[in-house]
Amino acid sequence: MDHARAAELFSDYADGSLPPALKAELEQHLSACIQCRTELHAFRQAVGSLSRLKKPAPAGFLPSIQKQIYERSRGRFFGKRWKLFGRIPFEWVSLAMIIAMLIYYIALLHGAPSGVRPGN
C-alpha cells in the first residue's frame, strides 16, 4: 500500500467502517510508515475539532420566531380558541337558524288572518 492509497482510507478508518481486510492492510502500512501515522494523527485532530463547533441558539430565539409569526399573520397564525365554548360550533348555529326559521314560518302560518295564507 502506498501513501496516497492509505490517505484515501482515513475517513472510513476514523469512522470505524473499513472492511476487516482493508483495515488490517492499512494498519500494517501504518505500523511501518511514520509519514502516514503523522498524517492520520493530523486528520483525526482536524475531524475532532469539528465536533466542538456545535453552537446553541441565542437567547430570545423562540420569542423572535413567535414575534415574526404574529407580525406576518397579524395575529391569526395560531388557531384562536373561542373563549367560552371552545371553537364556534358552526353546524349547531346553522341548525338553530333553520329551526328558528321553521318556527317563524309556522307561527306566521297560524297567526295569519283566514283566507290570506302565505303562498296564496
Binding site: 453552537k55 441558539a57 430565539f61
Partner: peptide, 28 residues
C-alpha cells in the same frame, strides 16, 4: 430542535445575524 437548526445554519453561513435570520425563517 432550535439549537441543532441554529448550529447547522451558523456553521454553513458563518455570520451570526444571518444565521439567526435564516434559522427563524426555517421554523416559520
Amino acid at each position: 430542535h432550535g439549537d441543532q437548526v441554529f448550529s447547522l445554519v451558523y456553521r454553513m453561513i458563518g455570520s451570526r445575524p444571518e444565521a439567526e435570520d435564516i434559522a427563524q425563517e426555517v421554523f416559520v
